[in-house]
């Protein structure tokens, strides 16, 4: 059977759908939102590290490849509700506003991705109580010329451009308190990128990054980090943001300057929380309906991390992208292509 169901219309699902369609498979792409592009589109990501390339240069072609391919049927505003049968004849119920229908597929690709960690539970940072404490995803929207502020970094409380910005690393990552001891793998480079974008646009604004380790392992990331320090004078302070308080409308943060061994308090105009990644509701829901294994954090577990990285615990169901664990856009696209190859070889 040459039909494949792809669940999730983010970059991973889009890439997988396109590659499969190119190989002659009939693909049904199910996306719960009424748009494609996943978190990248939802939060209007503006530029991509390390090349500072516009997101539209990457996302638009990936979407266009799917929408213009006659082998792909896109179901927006749809979700899957039930699975029966086994490989290579899965019967899946797909639901949208008009009703429910059942279709048969030879294989299923789960590309349900991640959601940004909700820092509300880190009560000490005051997110959702103090207006000028925002997440890195919200900053993407602010910096995007097509966003609500037309690309100006206007702080939510009074619309002013902040003169001092602090960025907190590892919010909801490397943190046993919230059950996420893992690294989010993108926070460091995204914050560095955003710091540069802010400095480029507002050279007079001071940007401070409070970090434990700058994990710059990706292509060109370390060079970007160097550039932030040398060319843009972004100040990196080694100490994790510990507390945010609001005193007479002034935000103030506490941390330890761990190199100097001293506790510090710092008044700033805006705080950006580098919120990490968490498995989204869609991922948890899909795992439940499809009956595939999750790891201890809720991400989807590959059959074998080394030998079968794109196979789920169930034959004929494949997994790819950020629903397996935190991942950046560049590698999500790689994952989309990889899973397509694996599906094709299994349906041969």
């Amino acid at each position: 059977m040459k039909t494949v169901l792809v669940i999730g219309g983010g970059v991973t699902g889009l890439k997988a759908s396109h590659e499969l369609a190119e190989m002659g498979y009939n693909v049904s792409l199910v996306e719960k939102q009424d748009y494609l592009g996943g978190q990248v589109a939802k939060h209007k990501y503006y530029k991509l590290a390390p090349d500072m390339r516009l997101v539209s240069e990457v996302l638009d072609p990936v979407i266009k490849n799917v929408e213009s391919n006659s082998n792909i049927k896109v179901h927006k505003h749809s979700t899957i509700t039930a699975l029966s049968g086994n490989a290579p004849e899965f019967k899946v119920k797909i639901k949208n506003s008009k009703g429910e229908s059942e279709e048969t597929f030879g294989a299923i690709v789960v590309a349900t991705g991640f959601e940004h960690f909700d820092p509300t539970v880190k009560q000490e940072y005051g997110y959702s109580r103090f207006k000028d404490v925002v997440t890195n995803a919200e900053v993407e929207e602010l910096l995007n010329p097509n966003g609500p502020t037309k690309g100006e970094l206007k702080r939510p409380s009074d619309g002013k451009i902040p003169k001092k910005v602090a960025i907190f690393q590892c919010v909801g990552s490397r943190d046993k308190q919230v059950g996420n001891p893992y690294c989010c793998r993108v926070g460091c480079v995204v914050s560095t990128k955003q710091a540069i974008e802010i400095k480029e646009k507002y050279p007079d604004t001071e940007v401070y990054v409070y970090y434990m380790d700058m994990r710059m392992f990706g292509r060109g990331w370390e060079e970007l980090y160097g550039k932030a320090m040398e060319e843009y004078e972004v100040i990196f302070t080694r100490g994790r943001g510990a507390e945010v308080t609001l005193k007479n409308q002034q935000l103030s943060l506490r941390a330890e300057e761990t190199i100097m061994d001293r506790p510090i308090q710092h008044s700033v105009d805006m705080i950006i929380l580098a919120a990490g990644q968490a498995p989204g509701d869609g991922t948890i829901e899909a795992a439940k309906i499809l009956g595939i294994k999750q790891n201890e954090y809720g991400y989807l577990a590959p059959k074998d991390d080394f030998l079968s990285p794109n196979e789920s615990s169930k034959a004929g169901i494949f997994i790819a992208g950020a629903d397996k664990g935190p991942l950046d856009v560049e590698n999500c696209i790689v994952e989309g292509a990889a899973v397509a190859a694996k599906v094709a070889s299994s349906l041969k």
């Binding site: 959702s128 059950g179 609001l246 968490a278 999750q294």
Partner: peptide, 23 residues
């Protein structure tokens, strides 16, 4: 700043996929 009890009652629901920690 004044506050409502429900505003500060934030940390209860741990959200997504965090069964790891619940004890």
């Amino acid at each position: 700043m004044s506050y409502e009890i429900n505003d500060v009652k934030t940390a209860i629901n741990h959200g997504k996929g965090m069964s790891y920690h619940v004890h």
